[in-house]
């Protein structure tokens, strides 16, 4: 059992496909970042997913996909001190990837742009 199941979390969507989880995060988050499968959050949870994996922030909450073999994918939201750290880490990683670009704030930039660039990178 990962630490996620012992944390206080909110289920935003349950028993859906991974694609639906990605679309929900892209549509309903303030900021969207993309990570590779196996990205580690909250000390011991390695994200399971089909790349590109969308991770979102909504205020101080981290919004992310969580997949269980027998129950499908979920979209979870966790808001605590650690979620703020995780969001900051995603922002820092994004800055390192694209030092010249602005942040992926949905009001400024479409999340699709990031998705496309990640997919292109993935195919190389």
């Amino acid at each position: 059992m990962s630490c996620i199941e012992q944390m206080k979390y909110t289920i935003l969507l349950d028993r859906i496909s991974f694609k639906e989880a990605r679309e929900y995060i892209e549509t309903n988050s303030d900021e969207v970042y993309y990570v590779s499968p196996g990205y580690k959050i909250f000390k011991d949870y390695y994200i399971i997913g089909v790349p590109p994996i969308a991770m979102g922030s909504k205020g101080n909450a981290l919004v992310f996909p969580y997949t269980k073999p027998c129950h499908g994918s979920f979209v979870l939201s966790i808001e605590n001190e650690d979620s703020i750290k995780e969001i900051n880490r995603l922002r820092e990683t994004e800055k390192e990837k694209e030092p010249a670009s602005s942040k992926k704030d949905k009001s400024l930039e479409s999340s699709k742009a990031s998705s496309t660039s990640f997919l292109d990178m993935w195919k190389k």
């Binding site: 991974f18 399971i48 994918s73």
Partner: peptide, 14 residues
């Protein structure tokens, strides 16, 4: 199911 495909996609990536 979709979860099985998702796990396999993860292995393919890592």
């Amino acid at each position: 199911n979709d979860s099985g495909m998702t796990y396999a996609a993860t292995v393919s990536a890592i």
